[in-house]
Design a protein around this nucleic acid. Structure first.
Ligand SMILES: Nc1ncnc2c1ncn2[C@@H]1O[C@H](COP(=O)(O)OP(=O)(O)OP(=O)(O)O)[C@@H](O)[C@H]1O
Length: 725
DNA sequence: AACTCGGTTTTTTTT
DNA sequence: AAACCGAGTT
């Protein structure tokens, strides 16, 4: 059979196995995704299953779309009927169909992180709580509870101990009430509500068990408890299940993903058969060797072998840069070199970083060097203020109970409804058990609101009513354009005429274009349809290999992708690994896995860069290079001295002059002048130690010193009286 | 009561 | 660097 010719022996076995639950455990680039793709194609070709009986869960929408396309190529159009998507999108779809059973309406809104945080914020204000945690930290906790399926009652009764915990409990409780009343769900709900649904309605579960006869999960190492529970629920003896993962690539622990899911699978699913793939088709021997030497430093991992027939290839280049600008320019120049020497397309080169904030300097340099690029993810298109404003309007038109969205647009553009009046309206709404939208319809009863403002509210309500009633008459695209026009938002940004406002102007036009496109693809598309799609769109979904641009993205976003050349930037302590707390091994190990993921994206060449100094939080920070660099097998790494080579650097003085001039005040005495990352110092009280980092300047300059006897201390240089040894 | 300006706090990674 | 908050202004 032709299909299987494109696979090696081990892969073929995994594809052909179709009996008990099975798990494919294999390292990077060994063809896990390929096996999953071919497996589905094989199942369809052998008619073991109809396409609509297959449930394939991927990590991103992009991965799902690509896999589906590939399967269509292999077995034809019928494959488009496969249920393929992320856990979130698939279960959102199921929830829309079954919403009434959970006392929701099908037009429920989906809250992203920002919406959730804003809800938390509103709750803190409404409850008049005095709490030290930021709304974002609280939301993180709530999300953690939900991910771990800790209910409000359970938390309040059994877990909350301190008074802070009790406050968090109160917020959590109110959060769940409010989000429900808003006919809205957050990302966690998209996984939890289906569990609730299946528990409450065994017949519904029965239905979906009958529906999904073959379940396949990619990137299984990054599933969380709720996702695990869901596949356990959907599984029974008649259902076939195959999961695929690499524990070394688990990088979403911070949001509830648990490698334990891979370890438990064998126990929880009867007669599990494990497959291993050991041949890597992606990378050179050198890259694999480097990646292996790094990941060996992690304690807990499933034993795996990985080898390749590919050539040795180039060593990893390690580029030292003076600061983030220098780094960016060296990268830009190096890209030009690599593209010509390797005859590559722009999209064959990826620039990866740990945090989005690093992209600024890179963008600037690429722009100046006239290299087309695209930021993937980052401040995602749909998360920008101006876009969320418009989407906020659409959400209210679709779901008037969505109070968060209503609050967002209430006074944008400014229409003279300020905070005080809004608070009064909300108080009124709660008192009479009305929604905010209903309250707007009865605004003249809210006597606390001034008459002039009541009129503004009435005007706004009429505006919304008008477009709500136009929903059935105009197409999605016509409706949005008309509304945006009447709102005068575009005009407003144009008149402001700043660089920022023009960018916003352009973004809104882009949004209108994309809505138009959406409408053209489906003439009957409703606002609900559109929102359902955009709420779950992710940054990486916007990336296409066929664009002639250099992709810039976080390492997280690069998961599952591959590029001939990969630049891994900002490899300094405190950036990558980011915030390594010395006592948190698990966190550090996850950072190491992330580094491993970054390395293994490359087919031919990896270039690692680090900068001696970098602007962070508005101040210059001096950091040692990443410990992960030191962990790489030295035979695989080639240090290139980048400083002074390039055009933009040549004009400057020597590297050292620059280093001291920018980092230290003139009047510093000799001793302080030569404090450097890595210097050994003595402190009167703490004894000997090594400088880990230097932050800030002048009197505020601080050093982090790892003392042999006393551990790490952060000291003000001015008072520390450190002596060099 | 809303708006505006300046000072303060707050920072991963994302479905 | 950007969002947020609060005091002073319209
Ligand atoms: N049998 C094979 N013959 C030729 N190429 C293969 C074979 N198997 C996999 N490949 C290629 O190897 C590369 C990696 O495959 P794939 O993305 O499926 O690996 P993966 O295990 O999912 O990787 P990762 O864990 O890094 O996401 C792809 O370019 C794929 O086309």
């Amino acid at each position: 059979m032709k299909l299987l010719e494109n696979l090696n022996e081990a892969q073929r076995e995994a594809v052909e196995y179709n009996k008990t639950p099975h798990m494919i455990v294999a390292g990077a680039g060994s063809g896990k995704t390929r096996v999953l793709t071919y497996k589905i194609a094989y199942v369809l070709k052998e008619k073991m299953c109809e396409p609509e009986n297959i449930l394939a869960l991927t990590f991103t929408n992009k991965a799902a779309n690509e896999m589906k396309e590939r399967i269509i190529e292999l077995v034809g159009k019928k494959a488009s009927k496969i249920w393929m998507g992320t856990f979130h999108s698939i279960f959102a779809r199921i929830l829309r169909a079954e919403s009434e059973k959970l006392d929701y309406r099908p037009n429920f809104s989906i809250y992203d992180r920002e919406d959730s945080i804003s809800l938390v914020n509103n709750i803190i204000t409404a409850l008049n709580l005095n709490i030290d945690l930021s709304p974002s930290a609280i939301h993180h906790k709530i999300s953690h509870f939900k991910n771990h399926m800790i209910s409000v009652d359970e938390y309040i009764e059994h877990i909350a101990k301190t008074s802070l915990d009790r406050k968090i409990g109160e917020i959590y409780k109110e959060y769940e009430i409010r989000i429900k009343e808003n006919n809205s769900m957050d990302f966690d709900d998209l996984l939890l509500k289906p569990i609730e649904l299946f528990n409450k309605y065994p017949r519904v579960l029965q239905h979906y068990r009958g529906q999904f006869k073959y379940i396949l999960v990619d990137e299984f190492q990054d599933t969380n408890h709720a996702q695990y529970e869901l596949i356990q629920m959907l599984y029974n003896r008649l259902v076939k299940i195959c999961v695929v993962g690499d524990d070394a690539q688990s990088i979403y622990g911070w949001r509830g993903a648990d490698i334990g899911n891979m370890l438990n699978f064998e126990k929880d699913f009867p007669k599990t058969k494990i497959f291993r793939l050991e041949q890597n088709y992606r990378s050179t021997k050198t890259i694999l060797k480097a990646a292996d030497s790094l990941i060996k430093n992690n304690k807990d991992q499933i034993q795996k072998t990985l080898w390749t027939d590919n050539p040795d290839g180039d060593k990893i280049s390690l580029m030292r840069c003076s600061d983030e600008k220098d780094e960016a320019f060296q990268i830009a120049r190096r890209i030009k070199k690599e593209i010509t020497s390797r005859k590559l397309k722009l999209s064959d080169v990826a620039i990866l970083y740990r945090i989005n904030a690093q992209s600024r300097a890179l963008e600037e340099a690429l722009r100046r060097e006239k290299l087309p690029y695209k930021i993937i993810g980052g401040v995602e298109f749909y998360r920008r203020k101006e876009i969320k404003d418009i989407v906020g309007y659409l959400r209210v038109l679709a779901n008037q109970d969505d109070e968060e969205s209503l609050l967002r647009i209430m006074n944008f553009p400014q229409r003279g409804i300020g905070n005080t009046s809004i608070t009064k309206m909300i108080e009124f709404a709660r008192r009479l058990n009305l929604t905010l939208f209903q309250t707007m319809g009865r605004i003249f009863e809210v006597i606390e609101v001034k008459e002039r403002i009541q009129k503004n509210v009435k005007g706004f309500k009429q505006f919304l009513d008008k477009y709500i009633s136009l929903k059935d008459e105009l197409s999605l695209s016509e409706l949005t354009s008309a509304m945006v026009d009447e709102l005068g938002i575009l005009r407003m940004y144009k008149e402001e005429n700043s660089a920022e406002s023009m960018q916003r102007y352009a973004n809104i036009q882009e949004l209108l274009r994309s809505i138009q496109e959406f409408t053209e693809n489906n003439k009957k598309a409703t606002i609900d349809d559109y929102l359902a799609e955009v709420s779950l769109i992710s940054g990486i979904d916007q990336f296409s290999e066929s664009d002639a641009v250099i992709p810039l993205m976080t390492v997280h976003s690069a998961k599952g992708l591959e590029f001939p050349v990969v630049f891994l930037t900002g490899c300094e302590e405190d950036i990558f690994p980011l915030n390594p707390k010395f006592d948190e091994d698990a966190r550090l190990e996850e950072e190491r896995r992330l580094f491993y993921v970054a390395l293994t994206r490359a087919k031919e060449k990896v270039i690692i860069t680090y900068a001696r100094s970098r602007y962070r939080f508005g101040e210059v920070a001096y950091q040692a290079r990443s410990r992960f660099i030191e962990e790489l097998d030295p035979e695989t790494v080639d240090e290139v001295e980048g400083i002074g080579k390039g055009r933009s650097r040549r004009k400057r003085k020597s590297y050292y002059d620059e280093f001291y001039q920018e980092g230290f005040d003139e009047d510093y005495n000799q001793e302080r002048r030569s404090l450097r990352v890595g210097s050994r110092v003595v402190h009167e009280l703490f004894g000997q130690g090594k400088i880990l980092a230097i932050n800030g300047q002048g009197d505020m300059q601080k050093v982090s010193v790892d003392f042999e006897e006393h551990g790490t201390k952060h000291l003000l240089v001015k008072f520390a009286n450190l002596r060099l040894i």
